[in-house]
Design a protein around this nucleic acid. Structure first.
Lengths: 167, 167
DNA sequence: CTCGAAAAGTTGTAGCTACAACTAAATCAC
DNA sequence: GTGATTTAGTTGTAGCTACAACTTTTCGAG
């Protein structure tokens, strides 16, 4: 690895702060969504990704990529969403190993109903707090971190399309 | 809340990327520490904070502040660390509601042994990946986010002192 | 003083996640 | 073609965390 053993004071401050962000941010997202929509952030994000896919349908593996999750984790979460009527699984005709997940009408409406409040939170914490310049910086920095965290970039560039509900 | 309903494309990219970081970073930290030292990142961070406290001792509530955790969570983790001989609890004489946690000799050695490998990871993902300028930016941005995530700033500025093992 | 509220911790319970083991289908090599 | 490997997905199990309920002690008001 690298040579220097410890972090200097400045580096330590950055790191410590960032660790706090890593700790608090997911909790804040979960708290808002759980309170307002009885969804974890991961569940919401999964529904949101599905809502933007063509036909609102995606293969499990693709969805796992978009949500940066393991197939195991996604499988459990989709089962749960299915139980609640927000998603539906169907065997994929082209590849009989694969499974297609589709957002149901209820799932779509859930996303539509939930998105505004969630976007408000994201705006209030990130978008409206940082300057345009800082937002750009965060974008660049995140991309660099991701290149180390996920070298093969399984987490695709998030193909955009369609109309509303985004993240 | 704010008025605009959706995020524009740029904002969406930033947010999506950042969500991926939020997802992958903790997993990477846990994976390295679990593999090399049979510790979660939260456990390691707890030990590291203790290692820098005067007397290597802190009240539960203070430690909860430094680790940005709830008392409930910390209590369980400290119990576990105690079972493994890395920490020790003692009733606080000044306030009989309170509990002091102390890093044991074993705990200290665990931190000393674990820190280098962990610092390597942190360097390789963050410190060495970003330019000095970007590090400063990340620091500023993190501070701004924290001001929203934790307005009362329970998470103190991480009083520094003593010698090695830092984070 | 003394009573009600706040602070410091702990713990039961339910839900989520990681890891590993496992099935089934598609591919690749020869 | 046929067996070995890889890909897609599911599920058992153990461990971690959040939330809420509950003690015990301290503090503040009157």
């Amino acid at each position: 690895m690298t040579d220097a053993k410890w972090l200097n004071d400045e580096q330590l401050v950055v790191w410590t702060r960032f660790v706090a962000v890593l700790q608090l941010f997911p909790a804040a997202l979960d708290a808002q969504l759980e309170r307002d929509a009885q969804l974890t952030h991961f569940e919401y994000f999964t529904l949101a990704m599905l809502s933007e896919a063509p036909q609102r349908t995606m293969r499990m593996t693709a969805l796992a990529g978009f949500t940066t999750a393991s197939l195991a984790r996604l499988s459990r979460v989709v089962s749960n969403l299915e139980k609640r009527g927000y998603a539906k699984r169907q065997p994929c005709p082209e590849d009989r190993r694969a499974t297609n997940v589709t957002l149901t009408q209820d799932g779509w409406q859930k996303v539509v109903a939930t998105a505004p409040g969630h976007v408000d939170l994201v705006r209030s914490i990130v978008i409206d707090t940082l300057t345009a310049e800082e937002l750009t910086q965060l974008s660049t920095i995140s991309a660099k971190l991701l290149s180390k965290l996920d070298p093969q970039a399984r987490m695709v560039a998030t193909a955009r399309s369609q109309t509303p509900p985004p993240v």
